Amino acid sequence: MAEDMGMRILMAGASGFLGKGLVGRLTSDGHQVTRLVRRPARTPDERQWNPSAAQLDPAVVAEADAVVNLAGAGVGDKRWTDGYKNLIRSSRVDTTTTLAITIAGLPAADRPSVLLNSSAIGWYGDTGDRVVEEDAPAGEGFLADVSRVWEAATRPAEDAGVRVVRLRTGLPLHRSGGMLQPQLLPVKLGLAGKLGSGRQWWSWISLRDWLDASAFLLARDDIAGPVNGVGPDPATNAEFTRELARQLHRPAILPVPALALKVALGGFAQDILASTRVRPAVLTKAGFEYRHPDLRSALHAALTE
């Protein structure tokens, strides 16, 4: 198991919400994590790169047993102007392409054994009430298109014989970031309610389970390809909002009309209003054990741990 091996792990996207948590988790497991940064390296555990220009010293990658790529501009951080949509795409594809091509260009003996590359359940598009697993084709829409080229960018490493895991992350839950953080104040003020119809499915996962799943996937040499990083029990937006309000002891009675979301958020509204009902078939079949298999326990952990 990876926890016993003390792996040397090279990570892109280590400064983000998920990256910070994963660095801490892997370090506590006894691994050595080296972070890729775009500015000049300041500490012994940093290495500089420039993925926009496809610049990465192959020797940096040859030092690693495993590579983790979580890099990408936040999809909910800004309005989806054409410029920001280009950034969402390029920040994912450029980093993945640079890593995969560099890995493939190394002698076989020097290649890391695994590339754990971030992806998203946006791959599936809007699935309505239909349950999807990892074998479902890409859907339609901007995020599905981004996910398609993002995942395709890992192919050079895969073609070179490296185990590639494409982790299609859902909605990680923790009060410190992600999609939960900006919801907390409105709910605490009693200004929250379902978004649009509230019938859209949200495929969430507790942050602790996402960290556990990432470590699990690094350790399991028999798992490759797409893996849904979601919990086993997705909820509708209305169910999610009610449970969050209940745990914060506040009402959730002010629905937000779909039109208002589209005016306020632009293109990102399509992601919030889309329904993606995803099942973690690969993790379940592999015997992964969730600490927070239901929404109530996941939100409780997200708000208290």
Rank of each mutant, 00 (worst) to 15 (best):
V93K: 09
R38W: 03
A54N: 13
A53M: 13
G83Q: 15
R42W: 01
G72P: 01
R79V: 11
G76T: 12
V60T: 14
N86D: 15
A41T: 02
L70G: 02
D65C: 03
I88S: 00
A53E: 15
T81S: 14
V93M: 06
Q48P: 01
A64H: 04
E63N: 11
T81M: 13
G83M: 14
D65K: 06
R38D: 04
R39P: 04
T43P: 06
K85Y: 11
T81R: 12
P44R: 07
G76C: 10
V67C: 08
K78D: 11
N86Q: 15
G74W: 10
A41C: 05
V37D: 02
A64V: 04
V60A: 08
D65T: 08
V68L: 09
I88W: 08
P51M: 09
P51K: 03
G74Q: 06
S90V: 13
W49N: 00
R89I: 14
A59M: 13
G83V: 14
G72Q: 01
A66L: 11
R47N: 04
R39I: 05
R79N: 06
A62H: 03
V60K: 04
S90P: 15
K78P: 10
D57I: 07
V68W: 06
G83T: 14
D45E: 08
V75S: 05
L56R: 01
D77I: 05
R39Y: 03
A62M: 08
K78I: 05
L56Q: 02
K85M: 10
V37K: 00
